[in-house]
Design a protein around this nucleic acid. Structure first.
Length: 282
DNA sequence: GCCCAGGGGTAGT
DNA sequence: ACTACCCATGGG
């Protein structure tokens, strides 16, 4: 595991690093993490002994995706790549090996839905600030581990109390009315039941909301529902596919392209590529 | 000041 | 189906 890249690669917006420790909330559980990669030793502080109904250790193993076989995922993509773009295999291996240790977090789908709705046409720095101001709007959600303060993500019934003007005051801009409309109309049971459905069904449901297109819907499917066949296409991935394979298109058509090139775990691969192209100069 | 940002909706072709 | 344009606002 590479904890720094995992928490820094753009899949999550609410983890912060202070004095060598990571502070965040995983599935309603505040955590302080300290990882020594050379010793493979993860130190955990929390105020809770459990997460999502299981003991804390297994909850964290699940949240961090520690049971994912990164070599199997890489191998799957490589075998697929050999069929469609064999010349690209060596470059692909280099991208994977350089960044190996990035793991896809099992995050809360509801939080992913709201945060990625707010992410549109914004830098990651701006998105993080929006997520922070939204959670701080609910002081009753504040929890502590020792002296350290955390905010649980607001539930649907809490967001229902806010109006468009509240969202605008948090500088959500034109996304404010999308968020208000979603909060007013969504059936949370129907949303949660998406977990065990095929990707196509997830995308159909999610894109029916105003403000959620194929990019955001794929992010919710991938990061919230852990559907690794999802393939979010943002400006960076779009530019990458154009530059590397000469392919252009919109978020929907390029999603199919990503699935065809990288195979069953294309969502996992997408995160490695996203990290790679944002952290290299070429 | 300028340009871009983990985009999406809409109206006009 | 494809394109052009608009949307709010922050950050580099």
């Amino acid at each position: 595991m590479d904890l720094k890249k995992t928490l820094n690669c753009g899949q999550t917006f609410r983890w912060t690093k202070k004095n060598g420790e990571w502070f965040g909330v995983a599935n309603e559980t505040p955590l302080i993490l300290n990882y020594d990669r050379t010793k493979c030793l993860l130190r955990v502080k929390s105020n809770s002994r459990e997460m999502m109904g299981e003991d804390l250790e297994n909850g964290i193993i699940n949240y961090l995706g520690l049971n994912d076989s990164l070599q199997s995922i890489k191998g799957s993509a490589l075998r697929n790549l050999e069929k469609v773009y064999p010349d690209y295999c060596s470059t692909f291996e280099r991208i994977m090996d350089t960044n190996i240790g990035i793991r896809l977090l099992r995050q809360d789908p509801w939080e992913m839905l709201i945060e990625y709705l707010l992410s549109t046409q914004s830098s990651i720095t701006t998105i993080k600030k929006r997520c922070d101001s939204l959670t701080r709007f609910f002081p009753e959600n504040q929890v502590f581990v020792g002296e350290e303060s955390f905010f649980l993500f607001p539930r649907l019934d809490q967001l229902k109390r806010l109006g468009v003007d509240d969202f605008r005051s948090m500088l959500f801009g034109y996304r404010s009315k999308w968020l208000k409309e979603l909060v007013d109309t969504i059936d949370i049971r129907e949303f949660e039941s998406l977990r065990n459905t095929p990707l196509e069904q997830k995308l159909n449901y999610l894109t029916s909301f105003s403000g959620i297109g194929y990019k955001v819907a794929n992010c919710v499917s991938l990061f919230g529902f852990s559907d690794f066949s999802a393939f979010p296409v943002d400006v960076w991935i779009s530019r990458y596919l154009n530059k590397t394979f000469g392919i252009t298109g919109n978020a929907k058509s390029l999603m199919y392209v990503g699935q065809k090139i990288f195979g069953d775990f294309c969502g996992y691969i997408q995160e490695y590529i996203f990290y790679s192209i944002r952290n290299s100069c070429d």
